[in-house]
């Protein structure tokens, strides 16, 4: 599979159709032309409330550009039930953040963002829904001057919606998530084109609570690779499930390429090639 990603801005073009004319933008989502947060990594990748965690942001910038250090703070409000975004509105715009740096998972994380809401005298709040891997997540806001991102840390919460034996087995046997391990091959260059390759460890198997069967099922996690680069032309040569490979023709002498590998449970790792 070859997927060309232009990291040079292109002029806008109009796609004409009989009904419903759709414009094209100068889309260059992989372009790094200034300081930009590409990923947030939690180490360990899955933590319970009250446990310490080390958060690292991948801040990408063109070579020679100062790389600022982002401010990392926990979001404190749950997103509404039908909110499609990664966090609540006041998390995304940074107006409802916990005080202090994000170093310990908040003690109420499973209550606010998970399946165990704090009960009130006259009502039982609706618990959050898990994602497709059965996971719950504590959002974290990362801010740079002029750029922001929201990532999240996978929470180790109990399974109150599961039968007690299943919940006990989950607590006992379900392994916590670990970040993928990505190893970059040395950069090989020929005729001004970079050949880029990396290896990723095998996806982990994990236990997921199946709502319909009310039981645990073993599932393999899924890795996805995202490429980013400074100005140039980047061709992604590997498809899903294949070791990441790409070609890059930089537009300038000083250039860089970033590969971010995410697993679908929230784990993340990255490698960088630069010259």
């Amino acid at each position: 599979m070859i997927n060309k990603i232009k990291t040079l801005p292109l002029p806008a073009a109009l796609l004409a159709a009989l009904v419903g004319c759709a414009p094209d933008f100068d889309d260059a989502p992989a372009l790094v032309d200034g300081p930009r947060i590409l990923a947030l990594q939690a180490e360990p990748a899955e933590r319970a409330p009250g446990e310490p965690v080390r958060l690292t942001a991948l801040v990408a910038a063109p070579p020679g550009t100062p790389t600022p250090t982002p401010t990392l703070r926990w979001c404190s409000t749950a997103r509404p039930v039908a909110e499609g975004r990664v966090g609540a509105a006041d998390c995304l715009d940074g107006t409802a953040l916990a005080a202090g740096p994000a170093t310990v998972v908040p003690a109420d994380a499973c209550a606010v963002f998970g399946p165990s809401p704090a009960t009130e005298p006259d009502r039982v709040p609706r618990p959050a829904d898990a994602d497709a891997t059965g996971g719950y997540h504590q959002p974290v806001h990362a801010a740079l001057p002029g750029a922001a991102a929201v990532g999240r840390v996978r929470l180790r919460c109990p399974l109150p919606s599961a039968p007690a034996p299943v919940a006990a087995r989950f607590a006992r046997e379900a392994p916590r998530n670990a970040n993928p391990v990505v190893t970059a091959a040395p950069l090989a260059e020929a005729d001004g084109v970079w050949a880029l390759a990396a290896t990723v460890d095998a996806p982990e198997a994990y236990l997921r609570y199946d709502l319909a069967a009310a039981d645990l099922e073993a599932v393999d996690e899924v890795h996805t690779a995202s490429w980013y680069a400074t100005a140039g032309e980047l061709e992604v040569l590997a498809g899903p499930g294949e070791p990441p490979r790409a070609r890059f023709r930089p537009a300038a002498d000083a250039a860089a390429v970033w590969l971010v590998v995410r697993d679908d449970r929230g784990g993340v790792a990255w490698v960088v090639w630069s010259r």
């Binding site: 990923a39 947030l40 975004r85 995304l92 715009d93 990362a142 929201v150 996805t224």
Partner: peptide, 14 residues
């Protein structure tokens, strides 16, 4: 928009 680092996409700000 704000970058959603968990899903490698941007989310809108309203």
């Amino acid at each position: 928009g704000v970058f959603d680092a968990a899903h490698d996409r941007f989310d809108p700000l309203f």
